[in-house]
Simulated scan of single mutants.
Amino acid sequence: MKKIFSLFVLLICFTNQAQEKPKTQIVEASCGQCQFGMTEKKGCDLAVRIDGKSYFVDGTKLDDHGDAHAEDGFCSAVRKAEVVGEVKDNRFVITYFKLLPAN
Rank of each mutant, 00 (worst) to 15 (best):
V48R: 05
K3M: 00
G43H: 05
I12L: 13
T95Y: 03
Q19V: 08
P101L: 09
D72L: 15
G66H: 01
K3R: 07
L11N: 00
Y96G: 08
V48S: 07
A81V: 07
Y96V: 09
G85W: 10
K23A: 13
S6P: 04
T15W: 00
Y96P: 02
H69I: 03
L7E: 01
A68K: 03
I26C: 08
C31H: 06
Q25C: 11
Y96D: 15
D72W: 12
G73V: 09
C13P: 02
G32V: 00
K42M: 12
C75S: 08
Q25R: 11
V84Y: 00
A47S: 13
E28I: 03
K53P: 00
S6I: 03
P22D: 15
Y96F: 14
E20F: 03
K80Y: 13
E40P: 01
C13E: 00
K23W: 02
D67M: 10
S30N: 13
R49S: 12
L100S: 12
D67G: 02
F74S: 08
E82Y: 03
F97P: 11
E28R: 06
K53C: 00
K21M: 11
T60S: 10
S30T: 08
G43F: 03
K3A: 07
L100D: 09
V87Q: 10
L62S: 04
H69A: 06
K98G: 04
V57Y: 02
A68L: 04
C34G: 06
G43P: 09
L100M: 15
A18K: 09
Q35V: 05
C31W: 04
L46Y: 04
A29H: 07
L99P: 06
K21R: 04
I26N: 13
D63A: 09
N90C: 03
F92A: 04
P22Y: 08
A18C: 14
V78R: 08
K80D: 14
E28C: 02
E28H: 08
E86W: 01
E71N: 14
H69Y: 10
M38R: 03
S54A: 15
P22G: 14
A77L: 11
L62K: 04
S54F: 02
V57Q: 08
P101V: 11
H69S: 12
L46M: 13
K98P: 05
K21A: 11
A47D: 12
T24W: 06
